[in-house]
Amino acid sequence: MSIRTPLARARGLGAASEGADHFWKKTVTSVALVPLAVWFIWSLIGLAWKPYEAAIDFVAEPQNTIFLLLFIAVGFAHFRMGLHSVIDDYIHDRPYKIAALILNDFFCVVMGMICALSVLKVFILAIPA
């Protein structure tokens, strides 16, 4: 999704030609995270003192699985863009900057996949054979 005007696209100007796109994606993910974060904290309050079985039942509940996967995907996408801005602002030496940006991408993608796979495993194993 882009909010750039056709004229701006045709000219191909602007920061890396996609400055507004980055801002827009950050805005969309933050709007999505407003309710998701409330749901997440609320759920953790409920699970804090519960045993292992209760946590499994919670994650395996389809609507919770969906909310968790959404929270993980949107959350790590938001982290990635936020950390990208921080690196842009503070690391000016080009080799370090590129290395930091690549590490940031690896960290967020790998962490997101590890979290998502764990949730999916619990969900799939809970399906009655």
């Binding site: 993980i72 790590f76 982290f79 936020g82 950390l83 962490m111 979290c115 764990s118 949730v119 619990v122």
Partner: peptide, 22 residues
Amino acid sequence: RVTGIGIALGGLLLACWLVALA
């Protein structure tokens, strides 16, 4: 900024919790 970076690192806590559950 500081809390944003902190939450990103806190993602490690979330990952540990979910992996342990799995």
